[in-house]
Amino acid sequence: MKKGSLYAVFYAATLGIICALALTAVDGFTASRKAANARAEEVRNILTVLDVGFDSAATSSELLAVYERDVRTESRGELTFYTYEHPEVGKLSSVRFDGPGLWGPIEGLLCLREDMTTIHAVSFYRHEETPGLGGEISSDAFQDQFRGVSILGPSGVPGVGVVGDGADEPNEVDAISGATMTCDKVEEMLNRIIEEVRAGGGFDG
């Protein structure tokens, strides 16, 4: 009995060590590529929203190289901005935002032009909204609406509107029909980041 237990412990230990060694070897072998992939994932979102041209089939390391060359990070107040000198529209600053959606968290990037009041681009790169309805926030049709929209209302009050009854102000875009709840949440999280940008030294740069 005792001998059997000792053997079992010995067997388990040996098997465990062999498995651990195998996994360590594989991990060591793939570590650099995995890290590059994870980093490239973030970088791709930032490059896209900043309109930095890159080859869509580029490998992770190529993307990182483009990012290192063109994008700078700046800390202003609490926020970290990713900036890029765009050859046509001038300096672009983008900042991350997030907030609750209808079904799960939504994450995105807001990119402002040099005046820090005109939106250059908005991208919602992570969400769990209803496919076909709220899920359309990540479609080009919805995101492109934000190009050139002001973050100031007609009376100078900061904030954008995602409205259902026709966007007619310079700070409004059309909501997705059938996805009022998602659009309200999106509006809310955009306005929160806009407030933070204006409060957090977005203007002293």
């Binding site: 388990a12 590529r33 995995k34 992939n37």
Partner: peptide, 29 residues
């Protein structure tokens, strides 16, 4: 040993699964 065969099986399965997962993460992100 019969008594710990399930644990041994899970260890072997887990090793193969993690290897596959790691390769996927590295080459097919």
């Amino acid at each position: 040993p019969r008594r710990i065969r399930m644990i041994a099986e899970v260890a072997i399965i887990a090793t193969f699964v993690i290897v596959f997962d790691q390769i996927l993460k590295a080459y097919y992100w």
